[in-house]
Amino acid sequence: MSETRLRPKLRGKELILAILRWILIIFFAVYTLFPLIWLVVSSLKTNFEFLAGSPFALPAKPQWVNYTNALTVAGLGRMLFNSVFVGLSATVVNIIVASMGAYCISRFRFKGREKIFTLFTAGILVPLNALMVPYFVIITKLGLINTYGGMILLYTAIGIPMSTFLIRGLMDSIPMELEEAAYIDGCGFYARFFHIILPLSRTGIVTAATFEFLTCWNEFVFANLLVSSEKLRTIQVGIRYFTNQFSTDYVSMYAAIVISIVPSIVGYILFQEQIIAGMTSGAVKG
């Protein structure tokens, strides 16, 4: 069909629509990119250049020293380590627990299976911010307030509905015959899980893990609530203190913000398909 479609010259209304379309496309792109570019460019200026010059001006000489300042003044190294450590630990535990749960829900028929499944799905819709009070009390009662453990436990738990959902979706698509054949050959419960199902649901697991890690990395509300010690601050909580730490050293503060954003953007570009799949499939089914 498309080969036979003639491309007439755009006239009148069509032309206006085409122009309007590109205006919109470019407007949204500029709206997203320009502030980020401004931030990066400003982070490479001297404070004098930043305060006196136009926002569109480029720095005379890129001031990389702002970045070394940012790393030392804010203690960004420690925060980055905390974020990576908490995020990775929570992701590993979360994926183990979720894939075990997803295996049971996806492959076996047992009493209460439907109810359990509904519980997991409903979990995706719960407004977690509203549960601040109980989370604070539970973590305190467990003696995990102000520890890595408290954050890791909470992040593991709040990601369970989503991860189970994503992994189960993939496990459902693995043919039953495969597992049944293995069963006849004498494969037990564990062997079937580790040797057949787990390797075959790799893509679902990667999506869930990427999504979980990104959620942990960007999480602020609970990290801020559960941790008061400076040593345990994740990068998101640390950002909050930048305004005090840097006071009038704007350019170093911008450098610190850039450092905090770069891992998210790089991770996104590397795992784009997984992140989009994770974020949209939950939404569409939910």
Binding site: V97, M100, G101, C104, L119, V126, L131, T156, A157
Partner: peptide
């Protein structure tokens, strides 16, 4: 296998609500 996930769901979703 199912236990850990269910315990987490109960402790961090059902009970808090």
């Amino acid at each position: 296998f199912l236990g850990p996930a269910i315990v987490l769901m109960l402790v961090f979703f059902v009970i808090p609500v």
